Amino acid sequence: MSAAARAPRKELPAWVLWRDRGGKLSPLRIAILAILFAPALWLLWDAIQLNLGPEPLNAAMHETGRWSIRFLIASLAVTPFGRILAWPRLYQIRRMVGLGALAWVLLHLVLYLADQNWIVTTAIVEIVKRFYLTIGFVAIAGLAVLGWTSTDGWMRRLGRRWKRLHRLIFPILVLAMLHAFIQAKSDVSQEVFLTGLLLWLLLWRLVPERWQAHFGALAALTAVSFLATVGIEYLWYALGTNLPAARVAMANFDLTFGPRPAVQPSIVAGCFLLLTLLRRLAGRLRAA
């Protein structure tokens, strides 16, 4: 064996996001980077075009918060997507998507400080005084810790404890969703949709590993997550608003005016079911 082959592989700097672990240019990672940056360009264009309403800073703050949750949920979707497609290389982007979500949530915090005229003491008082801001800040702090310890060096340093630490992403996301629900008040369409996706991803992790890519198990999981999402939507409207919660819940079973937010995650989950069928069909064709 040559000296070059025996030499340990030099790790790439953390900021070289467009190359894989072997140092090669990665089209997949470049595409993910573009997706992570695209909403910022969209938001900037809306700001230039004065499409953010009478309070553009406040609107931008809420939108960055939503994108942080979207990308966090996307980071959780990498594992089931990679397993269903039998595409282990997809796992390499999980950290990148998670760090992208952290960047968005930090931008959300910066815009909140800007909305408070950069008076840090005022922002702190508001965070302590208002429950939804308190849990939102706890979620940001927890996500910052996970981002800081996401490097290979921290993985080696913490050993088995690293995985236990990073399982905190699940309660962090629950806090973030509760923060979003309280902030949204009566119109929680986006929040219900994201909650449905999160429920599916959480329940998928409870399914035994040998069934996680099985069509029947995924179909049952989709039905259970749909009913759970409807139940959460009902409880929110029943406990937090004066709107007729039962009528809102029953509307999810009527597609006359299109799928409601609680139904839409099931449509997304249907894509996983379709991928499972296509994978099974491809396997049979190869065997034939």
Rank of each mutant, 00 (worst) to 15 (best):
residue 220 A to Q: 11
residue 197 L to P: 06
residue 190 Q to D: 14
residue 98 G to M: 00
residue 187 D to G: 08
residue 64 T to S: 15
residue 279 R to P: 15
residue 130 R to N: 15
residue 157 R to V: 00
residue 68 S to M: 04
residue 151 T to Y: 05
residue 152 D to N: 13
residue 79 T to L: 02
residue 10 K to L: 06
residue 216 G to W: 15
residue 143 L to N: 13
residue 282 A to V: 02
residue 103 A to M: 07
residue 184 A to E: 12
residue 110 V to T: 09
residue 135 I to K: 10
residue 38 A to E: 14
residue 202 L to W: 15
residue 187 D to T: 03
residue 273 L to V: 02
residue 205 R to K: 09
residue 92 Q to F: 03
residue 23 G to Q: 06
residue 168 L to A: 08
residue 62 H to K: 12
residue 186 S to F: 09
residue 64 T to F: 08
residue 249 A to I: 00
residue 170 F to R: 13
residue 238 A to G: 09
residue 73 I to M: 08
residue 235 L to P: 03
residue 71 F to V: 01
residue 184 A to M: 04
residue 72 L to E: 05
residue 22 G to E: 11
residue 63 E to G: 03
residue 236 W to K: 04
residue 162 W to N: 07
residue 23 G to K: 02
residue 24 K to Q: 15
residue 245 A to P: 05
residue 278 L to V: 01
residue 230 V to L: 04
residue 120 V to R: 10
residue 80 P to D: 14
residue 198 L to G: 15
residue 22 G to L: 04
residue 282 A to R: 10
residue 135 I to A: 10
residue 208 P to I: 00
residue 66 R to C: 04
residue 37 F to H: 11
residue 61 M to C: 07
residue 277 L to I: 02
residue 62 H to F: 12
residue 184 A to C: 08
residue 26 S to A: 02
residue 212 Q to S: 07
residue 128 V to D: 02
residue 53 G to N: 12
residue 115 D to S: 08
residue 43 L to Y: 12
residue 173 L to C: 13
residue 268 V to K: 00
residue 270 G to Q: 10
residue 201 L to G: 04
residue 284 R to P: 12
residue 152 D to C: 01
residue 111 L to A: 02
residue 64 T to V: 03
residue 118 W to F: 15
residue 264 Q to F: 03
residue 9 R to P: 03
residue 248 V to G: 14
residue 242 N to W: 06
residue 40 A to G: 12
residue 24 K to S: 15
residue 17 L to A: 07
residue 38 A to Q: 11
residue 213 A to G: 07
residue 204 W to Y: 07
residue 82 G to Q: 09
residue 5 A to I: 02
residue 74 A to Q: 09
residue 277 L to K: 08
residue 112 Y to C: 00
residue 237 Y to D: 10
residue 79 T to E: 07
residue 164 R to E: 06
residue 231 G to K: 01
residue 7 A to Q: 15
residue 274 L to C: 02
residue 8 P to D: 07
residue 133 L to H: 15
residue 281 L to Q: 15
residue 104 W to Q: 01
residue 237 Y to K: 01
residue 129 K to V: 03
residue 270 G to F: 11
residue 265 P to T: 00
residue 198 L to V: 01
residue 184 A to S: 14
residue 157 R to F: 09
residue 81 F to H: 05
residue 32 I to C: 13
residue 229 T to F: 04
residue 57 L to F: 13
residue 205 R to Q: 14
residue 161 R to E: 11
residue 226 F to S: 00
